[in-house]
Nucleic acid binder design. Sequence first.
DNA 1: CTGCCATGTAAGCAACTCCTTATGTAAGTT
DNA 2: AACTTACATAAGGAGTTGCTTACATGGCAG
Lengths: 114, 114
Amino acid sequence: MAGAPDQLSLVFAALADPTRRAILSRLRQGSATAGELAEPFQISRPAVSQHLRVLEKAGLIERTASAQWRNCTLRTEPLDDVSAWIDHHRGLWNERFDLLDERLRELKEKAGND
Amino acid sequence: MAGAPDQLSLVFAALADPTRRAILSRLRQGSATAGELAEPFQISRPAVSQHLRVLEKAGLIERTASAQWRNCTLRTEPLDDVSAWIDHHRGLWNERFDLLDERLRELKEKAGND
DNA sequence: CTGCCATGTAAGCAACTCCTTATGTAAGTT
DNA sequence: AACTTACATAAGGAGTTGCTTACATGGCAG
């Protein structure tokens, strides 16, 4: 039993593969069919299909069927979560806002003691 | 033969594990020894040790040995690369800088044709 | 209906991940 | 010296990933 991994882990895992990142890069220029996405790669179609499934599970693409073509479109919402996590741990927020917070508290105490 | 994965893939893969993300979160409050990092988790010490090695290979932590203690410190540089990739694919940059790029290329061509 | 085309699914395999227990290794303690 | 502490590494196993080939599905063209 696997015990489904959380969404953030799914997204990070999806992005850990260069082929999948290349697929996403490609989709940045607009949606494409599975065949178009497979073309630039040396790997087989089923392999690409499996990559697409991983990306879909991570919420990074959306697949809509029209006739025998599957259209893939980029979805960037999961990247917002990733971005939030990353920024939180880069200290863009922190070491600045935490210090600011502390500074404010100091000033408050000082003002209180006057 | 594995064929060493690129650094960005290493970082994404390292971040795909909740335990490792928790370790990084913990390190945000300052450096810690391997033992301190292992304590909050139910898994064995060797398991934590292996997680630390993955994080080290990804460049996300630095381990320095002093006596029999291994001190782990957070390194955020790899997160900058991740952040750049993410932002690039979120369309924060894009729709602005790609257009600028294209515009520059147009101007260049025009200048060449003169 | 028959056959092609685009794609997904199934089965199988090598390689990797993540955990375990057992065994180093190096520094401090008695 | 023997013992403990703090960690790493080794070996092994269950589960997952990423690829392959072979087959199934479903729309379309003759």
